[in-house]
Amino acid sequence: MKKLLFILLAGTCGLVWAQTNQPAQKKPPAAPTDINSDSADFDLNGRRVEYLGHVTVKDAQINLQCDRLVVDLPESGQRPSRISAESGSRVLIDLIQNGQKYHITATNALYLYSVENSVTNDTVTLTGSPVAQSEENVIEGDKIIWDRVTGHFRVYGHHETLQAPQDGRTNALPVKLF
């Protein structure tokens, strides 16, 4: 009986051991981001950095050009909660989402990230005559919010679709109008 219990116990431990030694799914490392600018001001007490003049941001998903970029510096290991981009002319954003290319212009772009009650808010709000263009259509509005969680563009206020999709393909802007 004792021998049987020992075998059962050893078997259970072996199962637990086998479960805990499953090879972990490795996430691909995030691609680095390059930021270039004429000048930069790092406020180490306020944990904020301001890039000024001919600012470009490049990574695997986004190319951004603006005159002023302000990043609230996160605690070590965390992601920024607020990034704003402004331009005297237009903020230019080229991005790739789900394999589709989008070209966005606006006067201001505000990135906000937060997690509240297990709900992730990960948005880019575009104001100042924003225009979002996919390969097949162009959307204008008073405000466009790019929800990075759902991949949708939400258009607020007066809006206009300048070019309708030419066929039923799915690479039109995933837009919700309000």
Partner: peptide, 20 residues
Amino acid sequence: TSLYISNRVHTVIEAGLLKP
């Protein structure tokens, strides 16, 4: 405490600025 860099600023964020 602050740091001002006046010319040709180049920043690299290894983990990415906006994580997917």
